[in-house]
């Protein structure tokens, strides 16, 4: 049994010999401006989703993100049907250590740096093409629903909905879907944006928003958009 597994692993290895480019020195900025990101987005290689499927298997992405990109537990985000540009940007940021808020991200860095940009585009194409994870109806207190939909002009707080959509299903460019994502994941990311530990957002957009949120609001917003997975 183990031997069989070994053989299949080494076949994967032989198939993937030309994907090993680890170093991909790139003059990527330390932070994304709208200009620098849009330029990068235009240069995104055309993704091959079949190759992406193979790479996802090779990198054991399913361990945390689930068989078809639907996360099996509360610990990692679902990826199925996610915004393709967002997926590509995320992988690129992990590879270049632009997203390194906690040790979980070091795992993503270690993995992403074994891939080149074409690989990352292929992976993004694969996950974007999967059947999206189940949609939920956002729910919470009237105050939190108001915050999500209308923001808070007094604090110059843009509503979540204005970029992520009325239901949090995602928006233009690299704006990801947050609807039905894991509660722990959403909460963690909002906290990291608030503290500035996560800083790969374009024009510091999420940091500006999260900065004025209280910990309680972060918790409530995460619950508002999250699935019920415990």
């Amino acid at each position: 049994m183990k031997t069989l597994l070994l053989i299949s692993f080494s076949m994967l290895t032989t198939l993937s010999l030309n994907n090993q480019a680890v170093a991909d020195p790139d003059t990527q900025p330390k932070a994304w401006s709208a200009d620098s990101w849009h330029q990068q987005m235009r240069l995104m290689p055309k993704g091959d989703l079949y190759r992406g499927a193979q790479l996802a298997k090779q990198g054991y992405c399913f361990t945390c993100h689930g068989e078809k990109g639907y996360a099996p537990s509360r610990n990692a985000p679902s990826l199925a049907g996610q915004n393709q540009a967002y997926l590509y940007k995320t992988l690129l940021d992990f590879k270049n250590r632009l997203w390194l808020a906690d040790h979980k991200d070091e795992g993503m860095h270690d993995l992403a740096r074994t891939f080149d940009k074409q690989d990352l585009a292929d992976l993004a194409a694969y996950y974007a093409a999967q059947k999206p994870w189940p949609k939920i109806t956002p729910s919470g207190s009237p105050a939190i629903a108001h915050l999500a939909k209308r923001g808070d002009p007094q604090r110059l707080l843009t509503p979540c909905a204005s970029c992520h959509g009325a239901q949090g299903m995602g928006g233009p460019n690299e704006t990801p879907r947050i609807n039905g994502q894991s509660y722990l994941y959403l909460k963690r990311q909002l906290s990291y944006f608030k503290s500035g530990k996560r800083s790969n957002d374009v024009e510091a957009g999420m940091r500006f928003a999260a900065e004025v949120l209280s910990e309680e609001e972060i918790d409530q917003l995460a619950r508002y958009y999250a699935n019920s997975q415990k």
Partner: peptide, 25 residues
């Protein structure tokens, strides 16, 4: 007692190093 396979793709070797650093911390 079980050992990780000798030959894997580069991703899995890198992930095991990642896991090793996770464990140290």
């Amino acid at each position: 007692t079980l050992q990780s396979p000798l030959q894997d793709n580069p991703q899995l070797h890198a992930l095991r190093a990642s896991v090793a650093r996770n464990w140290q911390r």
